[in-house]
Design a protein around this nucleic acid. Structure first.
Lengths: 139, 139
DNA sequence: ACTTTTGCTTTCAATTCGATAGCAAAAATA
DNA sequence: TATTTTTGCTATCGAATTGAAAGCAAAAGT
């Protein structure tokens, strides 16, 4: 696992972790769709290859953005959950969504997402609250 | 130039344009440091290779995030400027910066950036205002 | 007992990246 | 005017990364 950073710039360092083709889509699925297992995340519209998903989950775990556990009822399935550090990526995810919604329609069909017309701070808060509420089920 | 999008998700589509290793760093330099020429942007701390910078500028121009012009005083230099669509990426850049500043110090040395302790909306507005003011010099 | 599901790993070809060199036109300098 | 430097790239080519497909062992379901 490479842990090198291009510079001391916070933007650059953030991108060195989540600035690849897949990480933020994995986090989107966990955060907005409450996906928790390898299978759940594999089944996205964008079809991530298992080798890449496996590598990305390990990297995100190594940077404490997600945690990996099991539940007693199921010895096979791993449960991946966002940590608070991962949950704090919510504003980035929401801004990417808002920008795409407002600026990409001239180049490709963009799905209509409901709830994007509220105030930014409200959207972010409700996404985070909802994820945190779900987390309570996993002690 | 490939123009394929993985899905209709606005997050995914945004990442299909700026979700590579370099685009958002190029935009950071243009937006925050008011860099305008190939040379200016080449001289960043992260050392982007000219072949990659060339390819990325073309792609960003094709998606109308930047424009390419010349000034009458200099027949050689190209001037790259952010369009309003590009300037609207400011919230994403600021959120990446804030997240890195607050969450990456456990893994790497992060430069202290001044002005990050103001209110988010204020930071975003002042970055955009400053860039727009600079743009007035280029008709 | 068997079939299916899950969470991966392995393989390997294709694509992308990126360091270096090179180059023509323009600008700066002598 | 002649020469040097700068600028904005492009070309090359080895290295790294990606990704489609297959494989597999353990657990779960039937």
């Amino acid at each position: 696992m490479k842990k090198e950073f291009r510079s001391g710039c916070p933007i650059s360092s953030t991108l060195d972790i989540v600035g690849d083709k897949w990480s933020l889509l994995i986090i989107r699925d966990m955060l907005l769709k409450h996906k928790k297992t390898f299978k759940d995340i594999s089944d996205s519209d964008e079809r991530i290859a298992p080798s890449i998903l496996s590598a990305r989950l390990k990297l995100l775990e190594s940077y404490h953005l997600i945690s990996k556990t099991k539940i007693p009822e199921n010895k096979k399935e791993n449960i991946y959950l966002l940590t608070q550090k991962g949950i704090r990526l919510t504003p980035i995810i929401i801004e990417l969504s808002l920008w795409g919604d407002a600026n990409m329609r001239e180049f490709t069909k963009i799905d209509d997402i409901e709830g994007l017309n509220s105030d930014k701070a409200t959207i972010i808060q409700s996404v985070q609250d909802s994820y945190n509420a779900m987390l309570l089920n996993f002690q």
